[in-house]
Amino acid sequence: MSMTPNTTSMPSHHILSVLVQNRAGVLARVSSLFARRGYNIFSLAVAPTEDPDFSRITIVVDVESAPLEQIVKQLFKLIDVVKISELDPRRSVERELMMATVRVASEDRGQVVELANIFEGKILAVGTEAITVSLEGSPDKLDDFEELLRGYGIVELQRTGRVALPKLDKEARTRPHKNGKAS
């Protein structure tokens, strides 16, 4: 992939990468800390890591820095949380997957296929009145693609929420939160 991730979007969004023990109830513990304070989680992605005993939760949240610091500290207090890094959007690579079914008559289908090809997306299914496409890429690229598809009429759309890892250049890119583990 030669695409450069667009990292200038949504400056008020913070990306938290939370390493947790892979066990029942952990996601509920994490999400309820946000819910209690009335903060909406913008997107959330969870899956096991290279070590199946641990999962990584990538949380994108739209919140000021001060309350975020308090939330991060509270997250540390959860017994199942092992490590938290706040990923600086300018120093991370972010990816997201989107699937969309677009209503399109067979004569216009070519336009959507062409659009998908330009964006390096995939055609997943073709019906007489609709087509399902997928696209993996930076969240901004997905936004653009979604906008263009909207003109045709989106029947169903699903995005995964972003996952992110620090970029591999120069020094370490993650910003591990201070104070280590909580009590």
Binding site: Q70, K73, N179, G180, A182, S183
Partner: peptide, 18 residues
């Protein structure tokens, strides 16, 4: 305070000691 989450929760300390 033994709980790092108490540091700066209400009043920012000049010297925090966990």
């Amino acid at each position: 305070d033994i709980d790092p989450a108490e540091q700066g929760k209400v009043r920012r300390p000049d010297v925090p000691i966990v």
